Simulated scan of single mutants.
Amino acid sequence: MRRTTVSLAAAVLAVTLLPGASPTTAAVGPPDRPFPARIELPDGFQPEGIALGPGPTAWFGSRADGDIYEVSLRTGEGSIISQGPGTPSLGMKSDRDGRLYVAGGTSGTARVVDTETGTVERTYQLAAAPSFVNDVVLTRGAAWFTDSNRPQLYRVDRGPDGEPGATATTVPLTGEWVQSAGLSANGISTTPTGDALLVVNTTSGLLYRVDPATGEATEVDLGGASLTRGDGMLRHGRTLYVVRNSLDEIAVLRLSRTGLSGRLVRTIVKEDVPPGASFDVPTTVARFGAHLYLPNARFGVASPTTADYWVTKVRARAGD
Rank of each mutant, 00 (worst) to 15 (best):
M1F: 06
M1P: 12
T5S: 13
L17K: 05
L18M: 07
G20F: 02
A21D: 03
A21F: 00
S22T: 13
S22R: 14
V28P: 00
V28E: 14
G29N: 06
G29S: 08
P31I: 02
F35H: 15
P54Y: 07
A58C: 13
S62C: 06
Y69W: 11
Y69T: 02
L73A: 09
G76C: 09
G76Y: 03
E77D: 14
G78D: 04
I80E: 09
I80N: 06
I81F: 09
S82C: 15
Q83L: 04
Q83G: 15
Q83D: 06
P85T: 11
P85G: 11
S89T: 05
G91K: 03
K93H: 12
G98E: 05
R99F: 03
G105L: 07
A110Y: 00
A110C: 01
D114W: 01
T117K: 02
T119K: 12
Y124W: 13
L126G: 10
L126N: 06
V133M: 11
L138I: 08
T139D: 12
T139Q: 10
R140G: 15
W144F: 08
W144K: 04
T169R: 14
P172R: 09
E176K: 08
W177P: 11
V178D: 15
S184I: 01
G187Q: 05
I188G: 10
I188L: 10
I188T: 07
S189K: 00
L198E: 06
L198R: 04
L198N: 07
V200W: 04
T202H: 01
T203W: 00
D211L: 02
E216F: 02
V220K: 01
G223E: 09
G223D: 09
G224Y: 05
G224I: 02
R229H: 14
G230F: 03
G230W: 02
G232S: 05
L234S: 10
L234Q: 10
R235Y: 08
G237Q: 01
R238Y: 00
Y241G: 13
V243A: 04
S246A: 10
S246I: 10
L255Q: 04
G259D: 10
G262K: 02
T267Y: 10
I268T: 11
E271K: 13
D272N: 15
A277F: 08
S278C: 01
R287S: 13
R287G: 09
Y293Q: 13
Y293F: 15
P295E: 08
N296M: 02
N296G: 06
G300I: 00
A302N: 03
A302M: 03
T306I: 03
A307H: 06
Y309C: 13
K313H: 00
